[in-house]
């Protein structure tokens, strides 16, 4: 995803001279081609994320579409107030890019586990919150944000994830788009961010009948498309590499509740949230290992039981 992002950003910057990249002294072997091609629209501000967010606000006030780039919690939690007040309150064209979403930097420890930022960021007005599911979505989100007017957060994974959307990717994205990966049966698995590959592999390997939807946007979410998902399934499973509190599953629950409260849903699907259970994990391990420790796993029975109840 990281590679897809920077390659697409370079393509966008070739045709859009407003694109400016700030990095917080991170991005070795990633950002160099951008820096070489566009030295006038690139700056390493050093290890100073609060300053980076403020500088981005200033540049955006002068017409630039600014991307700030760093790892997980650094361009997000470390400068949360600058994001809220300087960038979002002033509604500026700043895109906050965090690499290593979730447990991507597994063994580096809790400092590098980006597992709370979506909850914090999605409460901030004006901010679009994105978590692409594969390199093709990362590319499409980069194009989307380079044309969008307003602040965005982009959570991307690491390098080397396989593409899920084949052969031509998801195409161009509209704000809030939901991407159907497969449509089958009464159970729908709603995935955001880098969990997508795990979900599609699980369904395929277990030969299970289930719909899969990828959510590159966590805020906003196209409510009409989501309504149709609510209406056409009896059970939903949300999965995310984030704390259960205030994350993607919570966002889906909130929207479903609002539909139900307005009596617009004829029947309300059950919803299981797969997310991190309010814990830190202090063991070394790969991304896959930590996901298992945190219980970010699908259960075959959850899907099959729901199908048999239907029958």
């Amino acid at each position: 995803m990281r590679t897809a992002f920077i390659n697409q950003l370079i393509e966008e910057a070739k045709v859009n001279d407003k694109i400016f990249l700030l990095v917080g002294d991170l991005g070795f072997s990633v950002v160099e081609p951008f820096a070489e091609l566009f030295p006038d629209r690139y700056l390493n501000v050093g290890i100073a994320e609060q300053n980076m967010a403020g500088i981005a606000a200033g540049l955006a006030m002068e017409g630039y579409n600014v991307y700030i780039y760093s790892i997980g919690n650094f361009p997000t939690l470390r400068c949360m107030e600058q994001i809220r007040y300087d960038i979002c309150y002033h509604n500026l064209n700043v895109n906050i890019v965090a690499v290593g979403g979730g447990y991507a930097y597994g063994s580096l420890g809790a400092s590098h586990h980006a597992t709370e930022e979506i909850g914090m960021l999605r409460t901030i007005p004006n901010l679009v919150v994105c978590a692409p599911g594969d390199p093709a979505e990362a590319k499409a989100i980069t194009t989307f944000t380079s044309n969008y007017v307003g602040p965005c957060y982009i959570r991307i994974g690491k390098a080397g994830e396989p593409d899920v959307h084949k052969p031509n990717g998801p195409g161009s994205l509209m704000l809030g788009d939901i991407l159907p990966v497969s449509k089958a049966g009464e159970v729908a698995i709603l995935s955001t961010g880098a969990m997508l590959k795990y979900v599609t592999d699980f369904v395929e390997n277990n030969n299970i009948k289930a719909s899969i939807y990828s959510f590159p946007f966590i805020k906003p979410i196209n409510s009409e498309k989501l309504f149709n998902i609510f209406n056409s399934h009896t059970k939903l499973i949300t999965i995310e590499e984030h704390q259960a509190s205030a994350g993607f599953g919570s966002a889906i629950l909130e929207i479903m509740n609002d539909f139900a409260e307005r009596k617009e849903l004829t029947s309300i699907p059950s919803l299981k949230r797969i997310a991190i259970p309010d814990q830190f994990y202090s063991v070394a391990g790969s991304q896959g290992y930590l996901r298992e420790q945190a219980g970010l796993v699908l259960e075959k029975g959850d899907i099959l039981n729901a199908i048999s109840i239907e029958k």
Binding site: A53, G54, E81
Partner: peptide, 21 residues
């Protein structure tokens, strides 16, 4: 130019403006 209230914000933004210039 900007809303302020939380301290320690404007100088970074000012630096961004000066950099843009």
């Amino acid at each position: 130019e900007i809303s302020a209230g939380s301290l320690g914000h404007a100088l970074s933004i000012s630096g961004g403006l000066a950099l843009a210039a």
